[in-house]
């Protein structure tokens, strides 16, 4: 298993007020993403645990794209990966962002 930690400064805080969300499951070709609103407004930290080696650049690219699109300021994002493809990762991140945008 390897662990990657990525940090971003976002242009804005994540909209909505959901405190946390969980999407996906740890199953072959899938991943779970835990999103928690615990950081200062324009910070985002992502921690990835994966058994697949050698894909640091892909993770970095997928996450950078997500941060650009969703501006997940204030979120601590934790990922347990089980060999998900980049498009699955992107999908789960956006699903998570949608849940965090909820207002209640």
């Amino acid at each position: 298993m390897i662990t990657l930690t990525l940090r971003y400064t976002t242009r804005a805080p994540m909209p909505g007020n959901a405190r946390r969300a969980l999407v996906g499951v740890v199953a072959s070709g899938n991943l779970e993403v835990l999103l928690e609103r615990t950081l200062p407004d324009t910070e985002c930290a992502v921690e990835i645990a994966t058994p697949v080696r050698g894909y640091d650049e892909v993770w970095t690219a997928v996450l950078a794209d997500f941060v650009e699109r969703a501006s997940p300021g204030g979120l601590r994002i934790s990922i347990n990966d089980s060999g998900a493809r980049p498009d699955t990762v992107a999908l789960r991140l956006m699903q998570g962002a949608r849940l965090m945008e909820a207002t209640r």
Binding site: M1, L22, V25, V26, E32, L34, T50, P51, S78, N80
Partner: peptide, 12 residues
């Protein structure tokens, strides 16, 4: 981890 398997936040 020692089996190189990912854990889950709720252990399923």
């Amino acid at each position: 981890a020692q089996f190189d398997l990912p854990a889950a936040f709720d252990d399923g």
